[in-house]
């Protein structure tokens, strides 16, 4: 198939997340992060997102550490949005303990940086600086490490428009299609009779 557009990636992954039972707001963030990974970082956002979405889904734990920093533990899909919510308040450094998907964490940070025009700094499990959605070189990943996250900014420049295509792993893409289809409902005859669209042949 033709490489999907970034909008298709975002829609497909969002739909997959919803089909897998993740909350709507989380699903949209993950879908946007997957598209950001594809478009801004040249990374297969679909595969990384699907790996995370089909992984652990336990409720995240949030606690204030002795040093006053917030600590989050749990699936990246849930911990990173909250970590970013806290970090972007501008008052705190947040530690995500051993994120299960460092690359999705990178994508969620990239999307958040693009949305806010802020500088997001990641250290540990992922080391990267993202300037308003534009990355300063490829991320360095250390699986199993904690992720320290803080936000500065605003970034001086906004990233250039994303115009690239995505090249997702075909198996991951198919899995996303299958998961998204779980949200679909067979249209009924009753719906048709109530006038959801033209009936029969149009020959006016």
């Amino acid at each position: 198939m033709t490489a999907p557009s970034l909008n298709e990636v975002a829609r497909q992954v969002t739909g997959a997340a919803q089909g897998l039972g993740w909350p709507t707001g989380i699903s949209r963030d993950v879908g946007a992060a997957a598209a950001w990974l594809c478009g801004a970082a040249g990374v297969d956002g679909v595969q990384n997102a699907m790996d995370a979405l089909t992984g652990a889904r336990n409720r995240p734990e949030l606690r204030r550490g002795d040093n006053g920093r917030w600590h989050l533990r749990g699936p990246t899909t849930l911990t990173l949005p909250s970590a970013l919510d806290l970090a972007l308040t501008g008052e705190t450094t947040v530690i995500v303990e051993q994120p299960d998907s460092p690359m999705l964490a990178f994508g969620l940070c990239g999307w958040a940086a693009q949305q806010t025009g802020r500088i997001v700094v990641m250290e540990g499990a992922v080391t990267a600086r993202i300037y308003g959605g534009k990355i300063d070189g490829p991320p360095h990943l250390v699986p199993g490490a904690d992720l320290t996250l803080f936000a500065a900014g605003p970034a001086k420049t906004r990233p250039a428009p994303r115009i690239s295509r995505a090249f997702p792993d075909p198996t991951a893409w198919a899995a996303a299609q299958h998961a998204a289809a779980q949200m679909r409902v067979p249209a009924t005859a009753a719906s048709r009779e109530r006038g959801a669209g033209p009936v029969g042949i149009d020959a006016d």
Partner: peptide
Amino acid sequence: LAARPDLRHI
């Protein structure tokens, strides 16, 4: 929202 991610959208 850390406690209630289901409310994120609204």
